[in-house]
Design a protein around this nucleic acid. Structure first.
Length: 230
DNA sequence: CCCTGATTCGC
DNA sequence: GCGAATCAGG
């Protein structure tokens, strides 16, 4: 596979959207995670939370490479080694005047209130490259898709005992059955799971625990998300 | 072990 | 330019 404009664009979008290289890779298809990362770097977009980037360690010349670097290059690369002979990991006790106390407990001037709350994290990306969030990232339950057309003026016998839009209230499940506009479109109507807009069963559909990375294949069926949900 | 991104380097 | 191999942290 080659990097066409479309693929590059999607790579950028997803990368900046926060998707992982693996996700990007298997969404694009035909490329490996490494290819994605490599391409991303070549494109100049990097600087994303990397597990390895946190602490900048000193070099480790001890274990030589197994395969790739057979030739010891004494001067192949200009080592940015500082002439300053500092090898001790302990911070120099010099800055005593500036900071009288650098206690581990900072006043933390940041008015952070809810660190647990963060921006919706992109969990996966749909076929068109649109960014899809994880179920756990959904804040308030989004009102289930406003129907284009309201209930039929003349209720047919079929839906006479079904839960129509007008029957919705805080206590009954708002899970849509069928599709808006269809003659038999109605809502679940069960008693809600307290605190949720849906009944217990449909809560199970609407709110799914964050699955382990391995089993994130089938996107959670959401109301109006797919072909049919019943 | 799994995951992650970063880097290197032969192609 | 590409990406497998490798590294290194979580």
């Amino acid at each position: 596979m080659s990097w066409t404009d479309e693929r590059i664009e999607q790579l950028k979008k997803m990368w900046e959207g926060g998707a992982t290289a693996s996700q990007i890779a298997d969404e694009l298809g035909g490329v490996s995670r490494n290819a994605v990362i490599g391409k991303a770097h070549r494109l100049g977009l990097k600087a994303r939370p990397s597990p390895v980037k946190a602490g900048d360690k000193a070099e480790k010349p001890k274990s030589a490479k197994k395969k790739a670097s057979p030739a010891p290059k004494p001067a192949a690369k200009a080592e940015p080694q500082k002439p300053t002979p500092q090898a001790s990991p302990a911070p120099s006790p010099a800055p005593a005047a500036a900071e009288p106390k650098a206690a581990p407990s900072e006043p933390a001037p940041q008015p952070e209130q809810k660190p647990a709350e963060e921006q919706p994290r992109i969990v996966s990306v749909g076929p068109g490259g649109f960014l899809r969030q994880g179920p756990g990232d959904q804040q308030a339950p989004i009102p289930p898709a406003p129907p284009r057309r309201l209930v039929p003026a003349k209720p047919s016998p079929e839906i006479a005992d079904k839960t129509s839009l007008l029957d919705l209230n805080d206590r009954i499940c708002r899970w849509p059955m069928g599709h808006p506009g269809e003659p038999d479109f109605h809502f679940c109507g069960e008693k809600v799971n307290p605190g949720f807009p849906y009944c217990v069963e449909h809560c199970g559909r609407a709110f799914q625990a964050q699955l382990p990375r391995g089993a994130r294949r089938p996107p959670p069926p959401l109301p109006f998300g797919g072909p049919r949900v019943r």
